[in-house]
């Protein structure tokens, strides 16, 4: 790892001020992606501003179906929250299958969505749950937040504070993990709102990162069943294609995962 200067912030304001004073700084939360990336010399920030000790970024609140999760909440905390499980179990299960137990003790929701790895799990949930992503500057809809592979609408000095969403009537997430890396080769989050509207978020498969599948959404809004997806086509031209799976394979996987998710949601 190249040399770096470390700063620990105890408030969002302090973090922003430390960032502004530093040179080519990056925020670090759990560091479960950034530290390995720096070790491989694929990132070389001059300064790190640590967000892990900011109390205001932590915690989960559920009130009348409205869920808010602090950006600094770890995957283990999301997976283990009883009140969140009663409102939206799918997001607990999703978090409980990220990485491994040690990674889940450090990795955070905010860190994951800020990184926007095309094979990360949370982006599919954020898009399907129509989450509002609040930063220290503004609030963004999930669809406007994720802009491409490892790209988001965040400005360099912008800090995610929390995400909020209305708990849906039904939802579930199904992923096909790569057998070696365990990252999603296709992961589909389906959510059916209390008004009957349906949103489908797909991760791991799209060549531009996470996306909604409008064809599946229409079919499932008309008929919430796995069979409704039989005649929906997934465009191969939108898919990633690599040594782990070509575009046609991934397109099929998206449909299979969507069916599994609908079946799991019940």
């Amino acid at each position: 790892m190249y040399e770096v200067n470390y700063h620990r912030a105890t408030s969002v304001e302090e973090a922003a001020a430390l960032f502004a004073k530093a040179g080519d700084a990056k925020f670090v939360a759990g560091g479960q992606t950034l530290i390995p990336t720096m070790k491989q010399h694929l990132a070389a920030p001059s300064d790190l501003v640590d967000l892990r000790h900011i109390t205001a970024l932590k915690g989960i609140t559920v009130s009348g179906g409205q869920v808010t999760i602090g950006a600094g909440t770890t995957h283990a905390e999301v997976a283990g929250s009883a009140q969140l499980r009663s409102a939206c179990a799918a997001i607990c299960d999703l978090a409980g299958h990220i990485g491994d137990p040690a990674v889940r003790h450090m990795g955070t929701l905010g860190g994951s969505i800020a990184n926007n790895d095309p094979a990360a799990d949370y982006p599919a949930a954020m898009v399907a749950l129509n989450a509002a992503i609040r930063t220290n500057k503004r609030t963004l809809a999930a669809e406007d937040f994720f802009t491409g592979l490892f790209e988001t609408a965040l400005e360099a000095d912008e800090i995610i504070v929390s995400v909020s969403f209305q708990a849906p009537a039904k939802c579930a997430y199904a992923k096909f993990p790569n057998p070696a890396s365990r990252y999603a080769m296709a992961g589909v989050f389906v959510a059916r709102g209390t008004d009957g509207s349906v949103r489908v978020g797909v991760t791991g498969a799209g060549s531009s990162g996470v996306f909604r599948h409008s064809g599946m959404e229409r079919a499932l809004a008309a008929n919430w069943s796995t069979g409704a997806l039989d005649n929906v086509s997934v465009d191969e031209n939108m898919m990633l294609s690599d040594i782990h799976g070509d575009a046609a394979y991934r397109a099929n996987l998206v449909k299979v995962m969507a069916k599994r998710a609908v079946a799991a949601a019940g």
């Binding site: 560091g31 530290i35 790190l48 137990p101 040690a102 003790h105």
Partner: peptide, 11 residues
């Protein structure tokens, strides 16, 4: 439990 190869001493 955490991975000490993925955590800085200063963290």
């Amino acid at each position: 439990a955490i991975k000490s190869c993925t955590t800085l001493a200063v963290q």
